[in-house]
Design a protein around this nucleic acid. Structure first.
Length: 768
DNA sequence: ATAGGGTTAG
């Protein structure tokens, strides 16, 4: 540096000889730009620009120095302060020929850069805070405006200004700055920054405009790069409103055409998010767009797509994607097989699932895919088997895990099996599995707890369930909403409303937050029990907790109010449904038709049915049942039979057991047992299975007509049809049969033996 | 990969 300046001094003392244009030209070439710049700086030293030697300066600047942006930038930077750079800029604005207009842009950039430089803390700034460099930058911008300077900003200037607006969070100013910005000042970096900031502040529309501009093939200077991709793909997975569904595909495609692709993680995330929002079609197109454009896609992204397709049971597309994976040599992972296996199990295609599982399990040549089942696959298979009642086969898989694989069964394995055995009614073995699990050192989870509690409840062992729950509480395991749902449902089922309410309170006091299901369960239980005031109380608690009633819940309430003859309360519910836009369904209409029919208000019932049809809910067998029942209650069995015959003839809605039960009951009550019996034959012909209620109805008619022989025949038929007598059956038969001295036959009947002929029953006796 | 709810006609 020192040597150079010596040389310069020397040169100044020996000015170049007067020269021709040619010589001058040559000297320009031979002179290093550095020396010219130094000369210029010397000339710019006087602080008053009136003292500048403009002819020398102009020659050096606009003739000697090559027309390069970087030289003018150098000069302004080396002036050392933004105010000096600004003075230089003023000078250029008056002296630069039009070919050198760019020099203004360069000088302005210099001024901007100088004003952002960290200033040394001085005594002044110690008292008045750091001088605000952003302010200076923005002042320069304002100054350029006030001078009506139209020279374009350089990309670097654009970036500096952008950063200042961003730091000051001056979003509106930033947007208008950007809108006025010359395209030549825009860079990918600046545009990416704009995108990021605009999205951060929710200026979605502005952000989209920036992006569209970047995607315009005209604008190669600021086309999207990997950073753009990161911002856009990140936004696509995080927000809903950024772009419409159709746009997602368009955007990914356009970016892909510029070779900006989401990485594996982002692509997988994007596909899962779209599938979670039920946008399978969009996810599918996104995946295929990037595949087509040559983006490397791996199994993880395909797995996300397969999961989404599985959720919508789109088997065709699942197969299509699998074929594509094979074609593109994307190796399926163990997760891929997990998805397929789970899908086959959920579709109850258990044998196909087993086939696939066996292929993976098969050692050597039969396992062509090279993926071995892991714990998840074993668990999926076991659960699938349990769900279709093949828990014994699930059990052998458990043994296989223990003996021939390195995959130890875990809590999930046992939970599935415990549930399987519970659902099969083998509570004892379920409990045995639980003990086995504990013996293996596995921790029971809340799902283990709930599975057993529910299993016990569903098999009438509510108090055992309570006992088990208490035992688990002792182990430090807390119940959740599902635990309490099972218990509440069970206690409501045995009409022990107080206990149900007690558990509801316990749930709240134990700090377990109730969900909608547990509210619905209790509301349903209370409504069925006719405790409509309590039900209403729980409804208001549900609402306080921020939940809404759904159609089924309203149905329960409407039905409850109707049974209590509180039609005005039922009506209130309907109004509320309308106001809260909860749609009525077939069950709602049937409930109303049934209530109106029972009340004998046929006109209103017909009105409701008309409305029902108008709203697109076709009457079903329950609607017919309600109407038939209404006529029967009005003692108009003929009309009821007419409707029944219509049903039988058209076969569009064939009568079911309940329809027959209503009619058999009504016919018997009308002393028309003969017709009732012929209906029973009709049932047999049409393959409609009678149940205990059917037999109770007919047996009552038989008893009232004192047709004893017929009673024995029907009792045999009842046994054949596997309809076990209930307390109503006993009420009908006990008094009658003991009065005629046939109590022995009743005993046999209860034990499940034939009663109509002695020999038969003896034979049965010996066999049994 | 595993657990819980509700309705209408008798």
């Amino acid at each position: 540096m020192l040597a150079k300046s010596k040389l310069l001094l020397l040169r100044r003392s020996h000015p170049p000889p007067p020269s021709t244009t040619l010589i001058r030209h040559c000297s320009t070439v031979s002179d290093s730009p550095e020396s010219t710049i130094t000369q210029v700086l010397k000339l710019l030293e006087p602080s008053d620009k009136n003292h500048w030697n403009s002819s020398k300066l102009n020659t050096l600047l606009f003739e000697t120095l090559s027309s390069s942006h970087k030289h003018f930038l150098q000069i302004s930077l080396r002036l050392g302060s933004s105010s000096k750079a600004l003075t230089f800029l003023e000078y250029l604005s008056h002296n630069a020929p039009s070919t050198h207009h760019f020099s203004l842009s360069s000088a302005f950039q210099g001024a901007l850069e100088l004003s952002t430089e960290k200033q040394h803390p001085s005594l002044f700034s110690a008292f008045h805070g750091q001088p605000n460099s952003e302010n200076n930058v923005l002042k320069l911008y304002e100054y350029r405006k006030s001078k009506n300077w139209t020279f374009p900003l350089t990309p670097k200037s654009g970036l500096i200004l952008f950063q200042c607006f961003e730091k000051g969070q001056m979003i509106d100013d930033l947007v208008s700055f950007y809108k006025e910005l010359d395209p030549s000042a825009k860079s990918s970096r600046l545009c990416n920054g704009m995108l990021r900031v605009l999205l951060k502040f929710g200026r979605v529309e502005d952000a989209r405009q920036v992006l569209d501009e970047m995607l315009d093939p005209e604008n190669v200077e600021f086309e999207p790069d990997d950073f753009t991709g990161e911002i856009v793909f990140g936004e696509l997975v995080s927000r809903r409103s950024f772009v419409a569904d159709e746009e997602v595909v368009r955007l990914v495609t356009k970016l892909g055409e510029l070779e900006v692709f989401p990485d594996t993680f982002r692509l997988t995330q994007l596909i899962s998010k779209l599938c979670a929002r039920w946008k399978n079609r969009v996810a599918w197109e996104v995946l295929h767009a990037v595949m087509k454009l040559g983006c490397g896609v791996d199994a993880a992204s395909c797995n996300a797509m397969l999961t989404g397709l599985g959720k919508e049971r789109d088997i065709g597309r699942m197969n299509e994607l699998l074929a594509e994976m094979e074609e593109m040599k994307i190796r399926p992972s163990v997760v891929t097989f997990g998805i397929l296996l789970n899908h086959l199990c959920k579709a109850r295609r258990i044998d196909e699932a087993l086939q696939m599982f066996d292929r993976l399990r098969g050692k050597g040549e039969s396992n062509v895919v090279g993926v071995e089942p892991d714990v998840v696959l074993y668990n999926t298979m076991i659960d699938g088997l349990c769900k279709v009642g093949r828990e014994e086969e699930g059990l052998s898989l458990l043994e296989e895990m223990k003996t021939t694989t390195k995959h130890r069964p875990n809590t999930v394995t046992y939970n599935s099996l415990i549930d399987g055995f519970c659902k099969a009614g083998n509570i004892n073995y379920a409990h045995e599995l639980y003990n086995q699990m504990i013996a293996e050192g596995l921790q029971p989870s809340v799902i283990t707890l709930n599975t057993l509690v529910d299993g016990l409840c569903k098999h009438g062992k509510v108090f055992s369930a309570v006992e088990f729950f208490n035992e688990m509480k002792g182990k430090g395991l807390k119940g959740n909403a599902a635990t309490y749902t099972s218990l509440i449902s069970a206690f409501c089922g045995v009409n022990n409303i107080d206990k149900a309410m007690q558990y509801f309170d316990e749930m709240l006091s134990s700090g377990c937050s109730p969900d909608a299901i547990v509210y619905y369960t209790l509301i349903s239980g209370l409504s069925t029990a006719g405790r409509m005031d309590d039900a209403s109380l729980i409804v208001s608690k549900l609402k306080e907790a921020g939940f809404c009633l759904d159609t089924a819940c309203y149905n329960v309430l409407i039905s409850g109010f109707c049974k209590k003859k509180k039609s005005e309360r039922a009506y209130e519910m309907l109004i509320e449904m309308e106001n809260t836009r909860v749609r009525l369904d077939t069950v709602t209409y049937n409930t109303l038709v049934s209530y109106l029919g029972k009340a004998g208000d046929f006109a209103a019932a017909i009105k409701v049915m008309k409305k029902m049809i108008k709203e697109g809910h076709e009457p079903n067998v329950v609607t017919y049942g309600a109407v038939i029942n209404a006529f029967c209650l009005k003692n108009n069995v003929d009309e009821a039979m007419k409707i029944f015959k219509e049903m039988s003839a058209t076969s569009k809605i064939p009568p079911n057991t309940v329809i027959y039960n209503i009619l058999i009951d009504a016919l018997c009550k009308n002393d028309d047992v003969k017709k009732a019996l012929s209906l029973m034959d009709d049932m047999k012909v049409r393959g409609v299975r009678p149940n205990t209620t059917t037999y109770n109805a007919i047996l009552k008619g038989i008893r009232d007509e004192k047709m004893l022989d017929k009673a024995f025949v029907l009792m045999d038929r009842m046994i054949e049809d596997a309809c076990s007598p209930d307390y109503i059956t006993m009420e009908i038969l006990t008094e009658w049969l003991s009065a005629v001295g046939e109590i022995e036959k009743l005993k046999r009947f209860v034990q499940g033996y034939q009663v109509s002929s002695c020999t038969e029953s003896l034979a049965e006796h010996f066999v049994g």
